[in-house]
Simulated assay, not measured.
Amino acid sequence: MEELVTKFYTAFANHDTETMVSCYHKDVIFEDPAFGVLKGERAKDMWRMLSASQKGKEFKISFSNVESHENRCSANWEAVYHFSKTGRKVHNKISAQFEFKDGLIIKHTDTFNLHKWASQAMGFKGWLIGGTSFFQKKLQKQTNALLDKFEKKY
């Protein structure tokens, strides 16, 4: 399990999206504050979209504390990048939880402080509303609309 999670994040750090998504079970369920719940191919396409949007840009990933507990695994990872809509630098610290089936990741849950992320990405406006459920719902609607658009092209 730890080897698979390490493979996933090493591929992410190397911008190797297809190796990343090969770590996912076909019925994977992914969840995070920005996208909400994504299942199967849509979860894989989210990583493809994020990778494509960062090509040629400063986008650094690091990970640590990969630990397994029975049929689960946890890890911490960090992303440093410039938010495309504002150009503001973001340093997001994420905690990840994984569950496995058939030797692959069946469930992946990322948690991070959305208010802190919004403050970095959008400045004062993000600080003002970034901690509200209204903001989270609006963000998820926007990110999923971008994913819909990506999937039509992909």
Results as ranks from 00 to 15, higher is better:
E31V: 05
C23H: 05
A145Q: 15
Q140G: 07
E3W: 01
F150N: 01
K107I: 02
K7L: 11
L104M: 07
K55N: 03
W127P: 00
K55Y: 02
A75E: 11
K93Y: 13
R72M: 13
K125D: 00
T6N: 14
N92E: 04
Q97D: 09
T143Q: 14
D45T: 00
N144W: 06
K101D: 08
M1T: 14
D148F: 09
T10M: 08
D32C: 05
K125Y: 10
H82P: 00
D45F: 08
K55R: 12
F35N: 10
A145C: 02
V80D: 03
A11S: 13
V37A: 04
C23T: 11
H91M: 01
W117E: 02
H25S: 14
V66L: 12
F12E: 02
K89S: 05
A145H: 11
I129D: 00
W127A: 13
L38H: 05
G40M: 04
D16R: 06
L50M: 13
A43Q: 01
E151T: 09
F100P: 07
H69S: 10
L128C: 11
Y81D: 03
K26W: 01
A121Q: 02
G130H: 06
Y9C: 12
A75Y: 13
M1I: 12
K138S: 14
G123W: 08
G131S: 07
N144D: 10
K141W: 04
E151G: 00
D148L: 10
F124H: 09
Q97P: 00
A11G: 12
D148Y: 07
K141D: 05
G131Q: 08
Q97V: 11
G103C: 11
L38N: 02
T17K: 02
W127K: 14
A121N: 03
E151Y: 00
Q54H: 10
T109E: 12
K85M: 08
E67R: 15
W77K: 04
F35H: 10
L104C: 04
T6K: 15
H91D: 04
Y24L: 15
F35V: 01
I61G: 00
T132L: 02
